[in-house]
Every structure is written in C-alpha cells, then in structure tokens.
C-alpha cells in the first residue's frame, strides 16, 4: 500500500497533506486529504474521518470547511477521502452528478457493473483506517466519523452499523432516510438492486431503529434554509423520530437561515470537532 504525497501545506501549526494510493477495495487510485495537527509530531492522535457529500472530492472539505484550526487545537487528525472511485471507466459513471463518480453513497455495491469498484463502505470503514493507522501517528482505538449530506448519511451508517468502532459521530444536513428520498432511491437501486430489504442495511433511520451497542451521542446540524431539506431529500424528522423511539441521544440543531453549502459547515465545524474531541480525547 504505497502512499504518494500529492501536496503538503503547513497549516495551523500542522500540515494539510494530500496522498494518493492504489486502493485494493476500489481497484483504482484514490486520493485523500489528511490534516496532521502539531501534536502528531510527538504523539499518536485520534482520527476523525470526514465523509463528503455528492460531487465532492477530497479537496472540498480541506479547502472550504475551515476545520484545521479546531483540529490543531484539539490534536485530532482529520482524514477526508474522496466520495467515489474514479477513472474506472464504468459506463454511465459520469452521466449524472448524483450517481456514479462523486456519488458512491458509502455502500458496497452488489450490482454490475458497479460491484467491483463501488465498495466505498468497505473502503472508508476498513481499508482507509488500516492505511492511516499503519502510515500515520494515529491511535487506532480512537476514531470517529462525521460528514455532510451524502457523507452525513455515510457517517451515520458507519457509526450505527459498527457499534463501538466510532467513539463519536456527527453530521451536517445528512440524508437521514435514503430509502425515502429521491437521491437514495436512485443510488440504492443502482448499487444494491431492486430488493429494498437490502437497502435497509444502509439506511440510517432503519439502522437507528435496530441499533444496540454503546451509547451514541449524535450531533446533527441542519440549515433551516437548506433547499434539499425542503425538497425532502434529507428527512431528519424520520431519523429523530427513530432515535427518540430507541432512546438514542441526538441533539439536532436547526440553524436558522443556513443553507446546504460549505458556508454552513464552516459556521459550525468547530462545534462538531469539539463534540468529537470530547469523546476522542476522553
């Protein structure tokens, strides 16, 4: 698993770097951004995995979210992978912005022609952590996950499907109930096939209803003026209802006036990193 450094910039006392590697899970070259706080020079640090949203690459988060200062302050490594395999020459992968390239949905595809490469769930929960833990001063016991939109959906399912693996989880405007929204239905039918029972394994609201494991403390921020909220793509109420039912602690903050953009993320990323730090540094 050779790593190639693509870029390195000093930032907030640490380094914001981008690496490229050959992914065995996705059978293609993958890039990821990694922020190494100053503390990483002398000690192992916990890692927060950031899962980005539709159309994003590893660049969006590291250039727009402004997460580095808080990560530096709390001594947290942030790993931001790409959102899908790229350059796999699968027919139709670049046809739409909400499916295929840039829209991996953090699932392991079971359907041709996607199932060979589109294994983002295994990539972000298995291969990437292994890679990070063996190549960087990361504390393998201390990892958490967060994300935005489709990445928020990814973060929630990663945490709910792997009780205890992630010490903390949070999300910005996550797609909470993909089985019930247009984006989810399109993606899941493409990657997972028509059998909706297989979809349930990747639906946060469904997973929340059957969750059992260590207590989770989920922080969700949602912009009130988010166009996708009003377009019923995100459906946070369903997730909240499921969590209320299962007594999964969620603090859901409906932030007045904010939309779906990185400006919204930028505004609250500190709260989220602090939320993660509370559990990662405990």
């Amino acid at each position: 698993m050779a790593l190639t450094q693509v870029s390195s910039n000093k930032c907030c006392g640490g380094y914001q770097k981008v690496f490229e590697h050959e992914s065995s899970e996705l059978k293609c070259k993958m890039k990821f951004g990694i922020y190494l706080p100053p503390k990483a020079e002398s000690a192992k640090c916990p890692v927060m995995y950031w899962l980005s949203g539709l159309t994003c690459t590893e660049q969006n988060f590291i250039t727009k979210a402004g997460s580095q200062q808080a990560a530096s302050d709390h001594g947290i490594i942030i790993v931001a992978p790409d959102t899908s395999p790229r350059g796999c020459n699968i027919e139709g992968e670049d046809e739409s912005w909400d499916f295929g390239t840039g829209a991996g949905f953090y699932v392991n595809s079971t359907q041709d022609p996607w199932k060979t490469n589109y294994r983002m769930y295994s990539y972000v929960t298995e291969e990437l952590p292994r890679l990070i833990n063996s190549n960087f001063p990361a504390d393998p016991e201390k990892m958490s996950v967060s994300g935005h939109s489709m990445g928020g959906h990814g973060a929630l399912i990663c945490a709910l499907k792997n009780p205890g693996k992630y010490k903390a989880v949070s999300a910005f405007a996550p797609i909470c109930n993909p089985m019930q929204c247009a984006w989810g239905q399109k993606a899941f039918s493409g990657y997972l096939g028509p059998d909706k029972s297989t979809w349930e394994a990747y639906d946060a609201t469904v997973l929340a209803g059957s969750y059992s494991g260590p207590e989770l403390d989920i922080l969700i921020d949602q912009g009130r003026d988010d166009q996708f909220l009003s377009a019923s793509q995100l459906l946070p109420d369903n997730f909240i209802a499921a969590c209320s039912e299962k007594k999964i602690p969620v603090v859901f903050r409906l932030q007045q006036g904010y939309d779906h953009s990185y400006f919204f993320i930028f505004s609250f990323i500190n709260d989220h990193i602090k939320h993660h730090a509370k559990y990662l540094n405990a």
Binding site: I240, C243, I248, P249, V250, V251, R253
Partner: peptide, 8 residues
Amino acid sequence: TPDIRITE
C-alpha cells in the same frame, strides 16, 4: 431560542 431537537 435556537431550534434544537433532543431525542433523549
């Protein structure tokens, strides 16, 4: 007040 939902 901010709009905050608390499940638990």
